[in-house]
Each structure stands twice: as C-alpha cells, then as structure tokens.
Design a protein around this nucleic acid. Structure first.
Lengths: 202, 202, 202, 202
DNA sequence: GATGAATGAGTTTTCATTCAT
DNA sequence: AATGAATGAAAACTCATTCAT
C-alpha cells in the first residue's frame, strides 16, 4: 500500500507540474512562460521543478510528448470505432483532433501552439514528435479514392492548417468539433470530382 | 547633406531596426527575441534602439503594422488587377497573400507568426490590426455565389488556416505561391455544388 | 549477516563516499565539487550523504584527516626502515611523501591541493592537521648537520614547496618518486658547505 | 579632454572590477568567489559586471592575463637591469617573481593561486598563459653553467615550487623577497659542483 | 542619433541541506 | 542505511530599459 500511495502522490506532483506547464505554454507561449510561473501555479518553489525535470526545455518536451500521446490515442480510438469508408475515417480523425484541440486539452493544444523554433534546444525532438503524430493523416489521405491528378499532400496540409487554426477563432456554443469536422471534410470531399477546373489567370 | 538627406538616412536606420526585428521575430518568436539580438543585428548598441522605439512592444507593433500594410497593399493591388469573377478575385488575393508569406517578407510573416498572447501588453492592438487586414477575405467570401446553406465563415477560416500554415511546410522549388493558390481555391470551389453530402456518422 | 558484517558493509559505503570526495576534491577543488557530484560518484542520492556526514565541510575534514593519516603513516614507516643518517632519513621521508602524492593517493593529494581558505568554515582544522604532519620535516631538518648560518626553515620550506608542486608537472614513466627524492635532496645537501656565496646585487 | 576623461573613468571602473576580482580570487579561490562578492566589492550590482566581462571565467582570464603581464614585465625589467652572469640573472628573476607574489600584487598571486582545473571552461587558456610566463625560467636555467649530468628541469621546477609556495608561509618583516631569492638561489647553485653525491639507499 | 555604463528586476539553474518514510 | 521530494538561498547570467553625454 505505501509503495503505491507514494508512487501515486509522486506522480500527482509531477503531473501537476505538467498540467500547469501545459496550461501556461498554451496561454503565453514557451518563452513567455517562466519557470517561476509554472512553479507558482503548482505551489512549488522554482528550484523544486528541477527535481522533476532537468530543464525548462525538458519540461516542454515532456508536455509535448504527453500532448502527442493524448491526441494520438484519441484519434486512434476514433479510427478503431470507425468503419471502412475512407472519408468517414478521415472525418472521425478530424473530429477527434478538433475535440482535443478545442475541448480544453492543454496538452494537445501545446502540440500545435508551440513551434519548434520557439525552443531552439528542443526543436528536433518537437519536429520528430509532431511528425510521428501527423503520419496518421498521411495514411488516411492515401486511402482516399481521389482522381490521379489530385494532390493529396496539399489536401492534407490544408486540413491540418484549417484544424490547427481553429483554436484562434473557435467559440464554444457556436460550433462543435463534430460540426466543424463535418464541414471541413465536406469541403475537401469535392476535390475528388472537380479537378478539371482551370486556373483563372493562367 | 540636406534635411531630406538626414531624414532619409535616419529613416534607413529605423528601417534597419524594423527589418532586423521582423526577421528575428519570425525566426524566434517575440519573447524568444531579445532587444539585444535586434540591436546586434542592426549594428547598434541595445540602448540605441530606444531612440527609435519606446519599448520592445512598440517595436513589435511597428513591425506588425508594416506587415499588415505590406500584405494589404499587395492583396489590394492584386484585386485591382483582377476582374469581376468572385472566385478569380479570391484566388488572386490568396496568391498575393501566399506570395508575401512564402516569398520572404518577414513583415508579412510576423503577422501570422506572432500571436497576440505572445505580447500581453500589445495584444489588443495586434488583434485590431490583423482584423483590419482579414476583413478583405470576409468581403471576398461574401461575394462568392454559394448555396444558401454553405457556411461562408468556415470556408474563409479554412482558407486562412491553410494559407497561414503554409510557411511551416512550404519548400521553394517544389511549389509556388501561384500553384498553391490555385489548388487551395479549387478545393474550396466545389463546396458550392456539393452540399448534398451527408455526414458519415450522423 | 553479523554485526561485524553490517559494520563492514557500512564502513565500505562511508569509505566509498570518502574515496569519491577525495578524487573530486583533487580534480576540481573543494568549492568546485558539489555534494551532488560526490553522491553521483558513489551511486547515492544527494541527501544520503548526510547519513554519513553532517556537512560538506565535515566531509572535507574527514578526507583531509584520512589524507594526513595516510601520508603520515607512510612517512613514519619509511623513517622506521631508515637508518641514522640525517640526510638519508630526510630523503626517505621525501620519497615517501612524493610516492603518496604522485602515486595516486587522492587522500594525500587533497592535503596539498586544498587550501584552508578554500573552506572558510574548516580552515583552522585544516591548518592544524597539516601542521601536525609537517612537524616531521621540522624534526628531520633540525637533525641535519648544517652550518650555523644556514637557514633550516628556508631549506625545509623550499623542499615542501618543491615536493607539493610536483603533482602539477610530474609524468609517470619519465620520473619516479624515488628519483625525484634523490635529486631534491642532493640539491639541498650542498647548502651545507656553500654558505660563503655573496649575493649578486648587494 | 572629455574623450580622455571618459575613457579614464571607464577604464577605472573596469580596473576596479579586475582589482576586486583579483583580491577575492586570491582570498577565496575561483569557485569560492561569487560574482556578487566581486560586484559588491566594486560597488556595482551583480548584473553590471556583465557589461565589462562576458562571464565569470572571462573575468578570471582577464585577471590572469594581467597577472602574467605584470609579473612578466617585472621580471623582464629586472633581467634588463641585470648583468651577464647567469646565476645573477636567475637570482634577479627570482627576486622579481617573489616581490610580485609577496609584495601584494593580487594579480600576480592569482597566477599561482588558481589552478587551471579550478575553472574547467578556461583551463587551456590558463595553462597557455602560465607557460608563456614560465618560459623565462627555462631560458635562465639553460644559461647556467651546470655539469652535464645535472637535470636543469628538476632544478627549475624545484625553484618554481619553492617560490610559489612562499605566499603560504611568508611573513613580512621576518623575510624579504630579496633575502629569500638569495637563499633560494644559493641553495641551487651548489648543485653545480656537487653531483658526485651518491644516493643513500640505492 | 547614438553610445557607454549602468540599473533592478528577472531569468534559468544549482546549491547544500532537511526530513518523513 | 538510504530514498524521494522538496526547500530556500544563492548561483551565474539576461532582460528591457534609462540617461548623461
């Protein structure tokens, strides 16, 4: 019992730090958040953070990892519950992604809010983590029945851009992640049959 | 050495500061850039910046204003040269926006790279400036001949999200702003005639 | 698992701490070595040191004491094995001293590497310990058959300076403690008969 | 006049920092001295030091350089005023060296008090600086008319060890640098004619 | 128009140490 | 005998900013 209790308490403390860091990184960016801010939000002294994390950047990486884990898990579960239809599957993933981003998971939000160049010492790690997650969308777009001449990459990058921009303008009540996902995917879906468009100026 | 010459040289100096600041804000974010970084990049001493700007946040606002001005002018010129067709006009604006963002105008890039929450003291100003620019897209989307049930706002926000995400993945040579604009608008254009789609899960 | 075994194991642990501390104090000085460094080198956590020692300075004193003990014992044994001739005895002591210093006893090395002023709280203790050891050389120099006008103190301090400087330049293989001792003492030995020298500038 | 006055005042401030640093490094070692200590001794705030020096180690290097410069100059002047006799020249150098070390030049004292391993980031620089100075003694010993079998290096290293140990025991009034130099060199001088000594134990 | 010199508050981080378990 | 978790002070250093010149 004691071992478990100790571990739990210890984990709680570490998790409190991660929670506070995630929240603050989302609210003020990485450089805009001081370790003091994080410590204060956790009820610790600044130095005490360093028992749990070796540096501010390590802490960011830990938050980022947790964010990638959470959003990945959420998307994976949604895909498991989803059927075979490629568009349906994409929409499920989109909805899961948006619900994490907009539903208040600071961890997931950090993944799209913090740019690698915000944390020079950790940039490669962040890029790698982000890529590991976004792979899912490459796979989902590969599965779509699109015309040969359609650029799947562009479609994917449009969707990712659209989704990750949502936290900037989304207002709870006015929209829902589900509704947005439906509209986003509906918009993309027509690219399939409409590629005969000519460009206007050339 | 007339008054004009003096003023010009002085303006040059001020512009050098703005240039350096724009470049650094893009590369490292607002909090991630120090006034020393900017001074060094301009060949000045840190204190000398304060002859030109009252504070770091004032400097950001100046860069941001210049960025909004430049991207607005570019889009406005493109629209002037564009005909009447609403989709063509949107595509021209999109191309102009992308060419500023991807063609190396650090000023324009600052406008999408720096979030208001990165600069707590200037956030309202930044929001206002950004909105003043983005109005153009609201107008352009309002002019589109869309089905009644199509959500113009969502389409607009998707496009803005897609465009502003481009600096993250764009590689010169592989794509061009013009090509991207064409693909982006083509994708949106079909939303017009395809609203009979049913959502997959409900 | 008797009381003796326990004690032995415990002593081993304490000795490991002392060993690590001695090594690190030699390598990086007293202030330059952190208790964390010592703990890590012993495979302990920082707090665990405090079961064995009340403070970092107590630990230094313990290392210093052990160093003085070891080098004293070594010199005393050498003197026991030495005959009656004062110069021979001095040379034996010198060789013993050098062999401890250069042969890799971090403990002995600490005694000459750490200055009392490096550890303000323990300085008096360190001075006392060092003096207790160096007494031997006073005695040995007193026994030398020197001219009346020869300054035995200076000779002694020269030798001690020369010996304690050796760790800075000594390279195993090129020299040996024994060879050095011989050369050092040979050099001093002539002071006896050469005191009629006049100073060069007055 | 203003330019000169400004330069002078500025230099004074920088020199005050160097003076304070030299004094404190001698008194408490490098790691034992904090930048706060140095700032306080100069009447500055801790951060203000960094206008003059990039880091604590840079400050040490500057002090060390000044120390090497001062003791080098002092020795060089002494050698200039000295005649041709090699032993006389060595004694002059020794006296100059000791007078710097014992006469209160904290700068010179730093050079022998601080070991390269005390400042891991600057160690190579310190070694190089020290060697550049000690070259002089190699030259002086090379010029001595010694028996072929005499080890000039050992003699040199004995002298350097003896000289640099002096600050530990020297008491003004009881000795003088000049008197010590005379005794030191006298002691070494006989090595010349006394090489027929046999070692006592082998 | 800009510099040299500094300030004072703040940064991230490390320190020796404590103590319940 | 040692650990996990922290503390509080201090470490080195950076920050945006000021101001006489």
């Amino acid at each position: 019992m004691t071992a478990l209790a100790t571990k739990t308490r210890s984990n709680n403390r570490r998790e409190q730090v991660l929670d506070a860091a995630a929240m603050l990184f989302v609210a003020k960016g990485f450089s805009g958040t001081s370790t003091r801010d994080i410590a204060k939000a956790t009820g610790m002294l600044p130095g005490s953070l360093y028992y749990h994390f070796q540096s501010k950047e390590d802490l960011l990486v830990a938050v980022f990892e947790e964010g990638v884990k959470r959003i990945s898990d959420c998307v994976d579960v949604a895909l498991n519950d989803s059927g075979q239809d490629p568009w349906t599957r994409l929409q499920s993933a989109c909805e899961a992604h948006l619900s994490m981003l907009l539903g208040g998971s600071d961890y997931a939000h950090v993944v799209v809010r913090i740019l690698p160049s915000d944390a020079p010492g950790a940039d490669q790690t962040l890029v790698t983590l982000r890529n590991a997650y976004e792979t899912r969308f490459t796979t989902l777009f590969d599965a779509l029945p699109l015309n040969a001449q359609t650029d799947r990459s562009i479609l994917r990058l449009m969707l990712i851009g659209a989704m990750n921009h949502a936290p900037v303008w989304y207002r709870k009540g006015r929209d829902t992640p589900k509704g947005l996902a439906q509209k986003f995917i509906n918009t993309l879906r027509c690219a399939q049959s409409n590629t005969q468009n000519t460009s206007p100026k050339g």
